[in-house]
Amino acid sequence: MQTYFFTGKGGTGKTTISSALARELSGVGYNTLLVSLDPAHNLQDIFELEESGPESQITENLRIIEPDFEKIKTEYFEGKVKFLRETTSHLSSFNIENYLDTLKYAPGQEEYAVMLFLRNLLFQRNKQPYQFIIFDTPPTGLLLKILSLPKLSLQWIRKLVELRAKIVDRREMISNIRNEDEKTKYYQKDQVLQQLRQQENEYDKLREFYGSANFYIVMNPDILVEKETYRLKNNLFELDFEIDGIINNRCNKPYTFEYLNEKENNIIRIGAKENNGSRKYQLDLNLIKKLDISLSE
């Protein structure tokens, strides 16, 4: 399975490029999934679909998903509240249910909803039938938050695992000194430690998935867009992501880059005429060749 992420400043053509590539790959027989991670989706507009559910089968080989992140968030929190009500009713004095209700609207929940969706997509669909998954991403700010979440969470989780292991050690030590009749296997029994390790495993897999993906930034021949592309490239680098290339979309004339080095950054040009159809999903941008996509699978 190959994964492609298309990112960049708002309005540069990420959705157009990702849709065109998905259509091209599915057209030559590859099972392709196109996913919009932007809460303001417009894949349905590109494929000229009537308002339908979050998933649509476009052709035999092409499926699109525009997740309803609000619904994902609500269902997740409702599930947690239900579980809490069943297991920790004695904690009602904390008013935890109301706290969770307000959390739905707290900052940081958008990227978490995206993470929940990806977790479900990657780990719970046992047999992944797709040869290509293409992600149309939200504009740079939210994308960076989405991509940094596994790294940030892992840093916290690893510190918490260390502290929790010390706690479990102390519990075992006290139990041994007291020579308690029932030997408790604290390490096996501690659900917090188990839960932390499970989360560590999931975030590790998510990082691995991001690490194996191909990242392309879509830009336009414009100095402001070029500046943001340059910053995005550096920000991604800080998060350990390497850019596979930059697509200079809607660029007819040779463009002089001020911040980016054309060769170093593998800049791929797509002319405005090529990308000027009234029916966007029918655009033929020859992206398989331009992005040098290996079709050996």
Partner: peptide
Amino acid sequence: PEGVAIELLPYMGKELQ
């Protein structure tokens, strides 16, 4: 990150008390 905390919440009864 809130997500890490929420996942642990059901198992933290004793600590919360």
